[in-house]
Design a protein around this nucleic acid. Structure first.
Length: 186
DNA sequence: GCGTCGATGGCA
DNA sequence: GCCATCGACGCG
């Protein structure tokens, strides 16, 4: 039996549902003739323009445009002069929600430190060139893993101290039993 | 093990 | 000027 690819109906739900649902799934990246697989262990939800930690709270700009489209596409942005961040757009058109993929565990025949969003994107060769790609396509997609039943913990998000009342919202999800999360507790 | 800080560039 | 980060460094 083969694992099933997550389809558009998976992504066209709330950011919270998508963030929670991605824990334990398998991220598949195909790049330059190679395939990389990793088990997702940490995500964060950015739930809309009212969420002051979300880039969409700054309005619709060239950078955030893809978030305003339908769920199931990649939102990749560049930050701190050196890191690309890989996000999954959630929900429906005109409801700009997204999920930051923060950490994963390499699967199969390769090793990498994927314990943090900067490291994860770099190791998987995910860059701004992937902004907008369809996550049900061939280069970047997720597989459901029915054999995975992670114990999911919910904490506040990392690095959003500027976000006023939203800084403490419990919108970070991680596998409590994974050692690959970017930080054990939030 | 922990806190602090510099790198480095796009963005509003 | 700030930032959804990381790694190097100093401490003791």
């Amino acid at each position: 039996m083969s694992l099933q690819k997550l389809d558009h109906s998976f992504f066209r739900r709330s950011g919270i549902e998508v963030a929670r649902g991605l824990i334990g799934t398998i991220l598949v990246r195909r790049f330059r003739g190679r395939e990389y697989r990793a088990r997702v262990v940490e995500t964060e939800a950015y739930v809309g323009p009212h969420d002051l930690a979300s880039h969409s709270s700054k309005g619709r700009t060239k950078r955030t445009e893809v978030m305003f489209g339908a769920g199931g596409h990649a939102y990749v942005y560049f930050i701190y002069g050196m890191y690309d961040m890989f996000n999954v757009v959630a929900s429906l058109e005109a409801d700009p929600q997204a999920v930051l993929v923060r950490a994963a565990e390499p699967l199969g025949d390769w090793q990498a430190d994927l314990s943090g969003p900067g490291k994860l994107a770099r190791a998987l060769h995910i860059t701004r060139a992937d902004n907008g790609v369809d996550l049900t396509g061939q280069k970047l997609f997720f597989l459901a893993d029915p054999s995975s039943n992670p114990r999911v913990v919910r904490t506040k998000r990392i690095g959003v101290e500027y976000a006023g009342e939203w800084k403490d919202a419990l919108l970070r999800f991680h596998d409590a039993d994974s050692r690959a999360v970017s930080r054990p507790r939030g």
